[in-house]
């Protein structure tokens, strides 16, 4: 089976003055369709950079990134935009809804850029909203919704275009623990329905809710396996901060 996401010796190097910062220092990994993977690590570990590359928001300095069998490492901005639109669905920590548009218009946004006509956009958006149980709030503005509801709208938006991969970057970071639990449960439900989910987090307990965990530290993979907190949480690499159990 072809992996959906494949990193082959990916490096991301920034030049700050005379210093070189290796945000990603040689990572290779494969994620297959239908997996629920959590990429976990403290800040500065390279997990955000990983997400940026997986999400086609950034390109690696060297190495290759194969998305659904295609090498996207050297694509230009427009091509990357196309891929983001068709294959990826983003869920951000801060929901990132556009405040002047109502809920339905927010969910329609990726469909707008996909070139669907207005009727199609409305139908698919409303289907998506229904899936997250917020169809009745379609005409509300984001500011009129609670944090948990806004995050659900964000999920609906991510699902609207039927992407191959759902990328969630600290999706529960801005929510209280109960709402956060609801969101994670929803992600698990999506996973059961067959979606591929990549979750980025710094919190081990959240990472443990996934199926598989990839732990990164100083730009490298230090663990890649079962989401058993006892197994991955105690891995310490040189220079790591304290570990939660």
């Amino acid at each position: 089976m072809t992996p959906l996401i494949e990193f082959r010796q990916i490096y991301k190097i920034y030049k700050m003055g005379e210093n070189e910062v290796h945000a990603i220092d040689g990572i290779s990994m494969k994620i297959f369709p239908g997996e629920f993977v959590a990429i976990v690590g403290p800040s500065g570990s390279g997990k955000s950079t990983c997400m940026n590359i997986i999400g086609c928001l950034d390109v690696p300095t060297s190495g290759s990134y194969f998305l659904d069998g295609k090498d996207v490492s050297h694509m230009n901005d427009n091509e990357l935009a196309e891929i983001r639109n068709k294959k990826l669905g983003f869920i951000f920590q801060q929901y990132n809804l556009i405040p002047k548009l109502n809920v339905q218009q927010n969910v329609e946004l990726p469909l707008l850029y996909a070139g669907l006509n207005e009727k199609e956009q409305a139908t698919r958006a409303r289907e998506s909203l229904n899936r997250v149980g917020l169809l009745d709030k379609a005409k509300n503005l984001p500011s009129q919704l609670s944090g948990g509801q806004q995050q659900r709208v964000s999920i609906a938006r991510a699902l609207a275009g039927n992407p191959s991969i759902i990328l969630a970057d600290e999706p529960t970071g801005a929510l209280d623990s109960k709402t956060g639990k609801d969101v994670l449960n929803f992600l698990k439900k999506l996973h059961k329905e067959g979606n591929t989910i990549v979750l980025i987090t710094h919190d081990n307990t959240i990472a443990a809710q996934a199926e598989r965990v990839i732990r990164v530290s100083d730009g490298q993979v230090v663990y890649d396996g079962e989401a058993d907190i006892h197994k991955f949480a105690s891995i310490i690499h040189a220079g790591d901060t304290e570990v939660d159990i």
């Binding site: 999400g55 901005d77 935009a81 196309e82 983001r84 068709k86 983003f90 556009i98 990726p110 850029y113």
Partner: peptide, 16 residues
Amino acid sequence: TREIGIRKSLGAKGRD
């Protein structure tokens, strides 16, 4: 700026 970033992440191209 943020809004533009969001739109781009959703697939808006430069010309959009």
